Amino acid sequence: MAETKPRFYYKGDRLKPLRAFCQVARLGSVSRAAEALFLSQPAVTLQLQALERDLGAALFERIGRRLSLTREGNALYELARPLVEGLDGLEGEFRNKLKGLEGDELHVAAGSSTILYLLPRLVQAFRESHPKVQLVLHNVTGKDGLSLLRSDAVDLAVGSMLDVPTDLSYAPVYSFDPMLIMAKGHPLAAKATLQLEDLSPYGLILPPKRLTTWRLVDLVFQQRRVPYTVALEVGGWEVIKQYVAMDMGISIVTGICLTDADRDRLEVRNLRDYFPPRSYGVVVRKGKFLSPQARAFADLVKPGAFERTDYFESGHSDR
């Protein structure tokens, strides 16, 4: 019959005997180790004996009145000390980690229009309530924003999405109507009602084709079989508004970008009868837990949109 290796009581809990072993190795005395561990000397002795039997090696030798490590004891001490110290310091490190979450970085992806028109007051409110968090805004659009979300380079995104991929969650918050903008005194401004066909003779100033606005404008004109021309393709609502004010063309913009000053220098007409409104909100990637600061920022945009039990990460497409 094969010899059965004995099973010891202390083998079920390796931490206690390893902690006792490390204390004796550090202090050179069972009695001093027992005091440090708030145990009796016999309890510490039993734990050491069980550990030596379990490992099949003598771990200490007595030199005078002090216990010293054997060669095997030294080998074990090198392995056990970081484990024991790590476990003993786990609670403190955990609490420090939680504090770090509140004083960490928050990365948010957004397009230029979102950063310029929608986020300023939200960023201000977040900075006031979370002064220790370093907020990093990534000015990106379209596929670049989605790539940042999916690669965990950003925590979430704020912007507009027409088509939401299955791996993302989108919580729309704000809605803005499509607006036709023209220079002061433009012929279209005199019309009581506007038809989409009325825009055909005038060149449009639009964002680049890779952005959502251009594709949406093209889709609506194509569906209604209304011809149109693009006089100028340029990025940035501020640039577009300036060129329209100079009467270089007309444009169809989202209401988010129009200020009171813009309405004073431009002719503005609502085109909700022809173009759908654009929503803006928080986009996150499914499957990633939002940090406290990311959840706080999302709640500033849309309170309660993403509860603590939900798992996310972000995605974004602007304009």
Rank of each mutant, 00 (worst) to 15 (best):
D310K: 09
V301C: 08
D152I: 01
G12Y: 12
E313G: 01
R319T: 11
L232K: 15
A296P: 04
G203M: 09
K143G: 01
R65L: 06
H130W: 13
T166Q: 09
L67M: 14
R224I: 00
H130K: 15
D177A: 05
E72Q: 08
L106P: 11
S113V: 14
Q195T: 15
L199T: 13
L149M: 11
G111L: 10
L87R: 11
D318M: 15
S175D: 09
G100K: 05
R121A: 03
A153N: 03
T114F: 12
D273K: 13
L300I: 14
S40V: 00
C257Y: 15
L15K: 15
L116Q: 15
G142I: 07
L204Q: 11
A50M: 07
D264N: 08
A296S: 06
L67S: 14
D152C: 02
L137V: 11
S68L: 05
G64E: 00
R14C: 15
Y10R: 06
F8H: 04
L162K: 13
A57C: 00
L122V: 08
L90Y: 10
L76V: 07
P165N: 00
G28E: 10
T166V: 12
E35C: 03
R225W: 03
A36D: 07
R19E: 06
A20S: 06
A75Y: 00
P276Q: 02
V164G: 06
G185Q: 04
L37D: 02
P208L: 00
F275T: 10
R14Y: 14
V173M: 13
Y10H: 10
E52I: 01
A50K: 07
V173E: 10
I115A: 01
V268L: 06
R263K: 12
L116P: 15
G28A: 05
T141P: 12
D310E: 11
K11G: 12
A294W: 05
F221H: 02
S129W: 15
V253Y: 10
L180G: 12
V226K: 04
A25M: 07
A298W: 04
L135W: 00
T259I: 03
A58W: 02
L48C: 10
V84N: 07
Q134A: 12
L101K: 09
A305K: 05
I240G: 03
T4K: 13
E238D: 14
V217D: 11
V84Y: 04
A298S: 05
K184C: 01
R263T: 14
P131R: 12
Y274D: 09
